[in-house]
Design a protein around this nucleic acid. Structure first.
Lengths: 189, 189
DNA sequence: ACCTGAACACCGTTCAAGT
DNA sequence: ACCTGAACACCGTTCAAGT
């Protein structure tokens, strides 16, 4: 376990425990046993450190999608499991989730983060594509349908994480929203 | 124009010009002609000031939805115009847009902000409901369908604002995504 | 009631210096 | 190559004091 790994771990833990504002370089240093500016020897800035956390999570997300893709169940079941995994991750680690998709500062950095994000989306697309081949989802261009589904479930997770779906009766949680969407989409062609 | 109004205006301008991190109380004070801690006489904290900006924007959004609802065109045309308004606002003012839906700090404050958010969503729901009555959208519970559409378009706007839909070829912009979603949904019942 | 200026405890980042 | 401690310029927030 390198120092850089311990620093990324500490940042992820602080993120989970107290949100983005809790990830100060001083706290990261303390939690990983180095001085408050040792992280600069491994990451260009605080923002680059957060990008490393996000890149790691994107990679884990992609691995989960790929693992689900290898299961021997119906394509639509795979897709539902992938979406459930996505939703669960977003609910359990909201601060890290927001890092992946809602941080303009990070998105501008490109590089590894962008590549990992793209790879996870492409693996997700292959799950959608399978459903189309087995006629369980309408036959529009796969990347378009996958992009739409990806954006929709992101919106559901994000509104839930942001507390927007709290007191509004009649509004569904992310799981119910995804199931409704899949049901309606499966009726189209 | 009260001092409080000038402070909110200044915060909104700074937000548009330089993102959330540019909204320091010192910059707000300078831009609105008061000292850097005069805002505390009008708002409990920096966070409460940002909530006031978000509340104002939610109110304007609701007014736009209501205005579109009064136009004398087909229900589906109204809905499309409302969604287009939403998307355009998100693209032109990304930092303010993110304040509405992606700031957990603000969501926890409840109060005026939550009420304004709810009102704008309910007005949006009435546009969706009209489409259902004229059989242009499937007849599932209106709040559920409206919630799904709202979350989906939010996801499209948010991914676009976060730069996630940039280099990925084949991925649609928010407008095309919404149109595809409406097309597919209109084929369901 | 509304505002100011000074002060406090933080923060990211830089830099000279150490091994 | 990797790390430290001091320093710099910021920041949100508080407080005593002014009108």
């Amino acid at each position: 376990m390198t120092t850089a790994d311990r620093i990324v771990d500490a940042a992820a833990s602080l993120l989970d425990a107290g949100g983005e504002s809790a990830v100060t370089l001083r706290a990261v240093g303390l939690a990983s046993g180095v001085s408050h500016n040792a992280p600069y020897k491994h990451f260009k800035s605080r923002s680059a450190l957060l990008a490393a956390v996000a890149t790691r999570d994107f990679t884990e997300l992609e691995e989960a999608f790929a693992r689900i893709g290898r299961e021997r169940v119906r394509p639509l079941t795979k897709l539902k499991r992938a979406l459930q995994h996505f939703i669960t991750y977003g609910r359990e680690f909201p601060a890290r989730y927001r890092l992946l998709y809602s941080d303009p500062e990070l998105a501008r950095q490109g590089g590894d983060l962008e590549a990992a994000a793209m790879k996870s989306f492409l693996t997700f697309t292959s799950l959608v594509s399978e459903c189309q081949q087995s006629k369980q989802l309408p036959s529009v261009p796969p990347l378009q349908l996958a992009g739409l589904l990806y954006a929709s479930v992101h919106g559901l997770i994000d509104l839930q994480a942001g507390g927007q779906m709290r007191s509004e009766k009649g509004l569904m949680g992310a799981e119910a929203g995804v199931l409704l969407l899949l049901k309606l989409l499966s009726q189209a062609e």
